[in-house]
Amino acid sequence: MNAQAIRILFLKDLFLSRWPLFGYLVGGLASAAVACLPNEAAGFIGFIMMVTVTIAAGIHLIGVLLLAESADMTRTFVMSLPISLLDYSVAKIAVVLVTFLIPWAGMLASLMVMVFVIPEAKPGVLPFLVMVFLFMLAGFCLQLITAVITESVGWTIVVVVLGNVLLNVFLKELREQPSISSLIESETLRWPPLALQIISVEFAAICVALGVAVLFQLRRKDLA
């Protein structure tokens, strides 16, 4: 593995995605701000906006950085440079993940800060938010491996739609769990065992998905 080559590829892709990235960061922060307005309707709208921004960012970044590269034949150009398949795969998966994490983490972090800063806010909602955000991250990782394996826009969209449906099911199930739904209106920050279990499963899923993505990319025979 050539760390220098990976760094150059990573920075190149970060630069290529600068405009969508900027847009999603601004959109995400604005949604987070709306969600924190002292108004129940605004809170709901802000939450929907955040979910929308996250889903849109995921599709868009995978499209720009991953799918477009094989469709537009820019990968042939990149692979003609002194770069090994491992360098390429690691850099690619890392940059797609990081560009997604920037608006994602931006939203989550600003929510966390505001929950403690705004006097009327109820910090008990935090574990709920973390579970939802991790769910969306796991969904994104699933889209990522689909895009890496199939290189197909169609299949990636199928997984996006599926993830969206599952997210709604997940939200509904969470609200029906008394230990979780009681958190949302709670003034104190608590981490019930169920929440911790869900979070660990989500983490595990994310790690597995990323591992599969790298492994699959390495087993690829032909790049052009």
Partner: peptide, 11 residues
């Protein structure tokens, strides 16, 4: 140095 007709740069 490799050049191929179907190779593309970032538009």
């Amino acid at each position: 140095g490799y050049f191929s007709e179907d190779m593309r740069l970032y538009k």
